[in-house]
């Protein structure tokens, strides 16, 4: 399905540094992304997410460190490399006069010379329109689409070349819940069926938890966490919230070991317990803890939290 070395990382970043004059934006970032993996890059504004992605896209030159994307250094890569990349950027209003189908057909044509037997390029435009749910709007002008529809078009443009690696910059901004659900299906399909490796940034932690196999948290120019959502929540010793009622009264308790706490609760009160709810700390809780921990003592996070899988 994939080209060659499926075992080689699709993205490999080592000790990546980026500074503008005296201000250091990235201070030794290292991570890998593997074939078919969905990675979410999280972090507060100004943490260096966009800078990282732009370096990987080959749009920005790093100050120091080693970066390999699809086997090549993005700073020296050519158009053949470019053809294997898909980019969904934060759009505004480009190509407003173009029809939806017209634009996808035109932009798809650039990928024709880069078609292979394993990855026929570009994607079939009708199929693509169906995938992103724009079939009914195929003849409409891009400038007359609603915000959510326009975003779907952006996604379609990003994948029209059937990329091996896809960058998604805050893809679901302005989506309604249905559109968001549809979009998540598209991402899963790309990763599972096409073997596309996906790196996305988002501020929606719920989305990151649903989509990503692995989550990277970037704070102060460093990776402060790297692991699945479940692993991160375990790692920050998130306190699990237990709620129950007894004798008409409602109780809440934050337990470190929820299983043990609930067992003891039942041993003590037996069938008096009602309305039991156990809520493990969410990615949002882990995120807040990790970012706060970093902000209160940046030096303490010299060693990023590495989760062994």
């Amino acid at each position: 399905m994939a080209d060659r070395h499926e075992t080689d990382p699709v993205i490999s970043v080592r000790s990546l540094r980026m500074s503008y004059g005296d201000s250091v934006v990235l201070d030794g970032v290292s991570f890998d992304a593997h074939h078919g993996e969905v990675l979410a890059l999280l972090g507060p504004n100004g943490a260096g997410k966009s800078t990282t992605i732009e370096i990987l896209e080959g749009f920005r030159h790093r100050s120091d460190g080693e970066v390999h994307v699809l086997g090549l250094d993005p700073a020296k890569a050519d158009e053949t490399w470019r053809a294997r990349l898909g980019i969904v950027q934060q759009s505004w209003r480009d190509h407003g006069r173009w029809g939806v189908r017209q634009l996808l057909t035109h932009l798809g044509a650039y990928y024709e010379p880069f078609s292979t037997t394993h990855r026929p390029r570009p994607m079939d435009v009708d199929e693509l329109l169906e995938t992103v749910g724009l079939t009914e709007h195929a003849r409409q002008k891009a400038g007359s689409l609603s915000g959510g529809q326009r975003r779907r078009l952006d996604v379609a443009i990003g994948i029209v070349g059937r990329p091996d690696l896809l960058f998604l910059d805050e893809p679901t901004t302005g989506f309604d819940p249905q559109a968001r659900r549809d979009f998540h299906d598209v991402v899963h399909r790309l990763a599972d069926l096409e073997g596309t490796t996906i790196l996305l940034t988002t501020h929606d932690l719920d989305e990151a938890e649903k989509l990503a196999d692995r989550i990277l948290i970037l704070a102060g120019g460093r990776i402060v966490a790297d692991g699945s959502a479940a692993e991160l929540s375990r790692e920050v010793e998130g306190q699990t919230e237990v709620r129950w009622s007894r004798g008409g009264e409602h109780f809440v308790h934050a337990a470190t070991d929820a299983t043990r706490f609930v067992r003891e609760l039942f041993e003590q009160h037996g069938s008096d317990i009602g309305d039991l709810e156990v809520r493990r700390s969410t990615l949002e809780d882990s995120y807040m803890t990790l970012v706060k921990r970093f902000e209160s003592d940046p030096a303490a996070e010299r060693q990023p939290l590495e989760v062994v899988r």
């Binding site: 896209e57 749009f59 158009e79 053949t80 470019r82 053809a83 990349l85 980019i87 950027q89 759009s91 505004w92 209003r93 480009d94 190509h95 407003g96 932009l107 650039y110 990928y111 010379p113 880069f114 443009i157 070349g161």
Partner: peptide
């Protein structure tokens, strides 16, 4: 105008898009 509205960045993201 097309630098401002992102058309040019779109071209840059496409193989040989800048030339075209």
């Amino acid at each position: 105008v097309e630098r401002e509205d992102g058309t040019l960045l779109r071209a840059k993201s496409t193989p040989h898009g800048m030339l075209a």
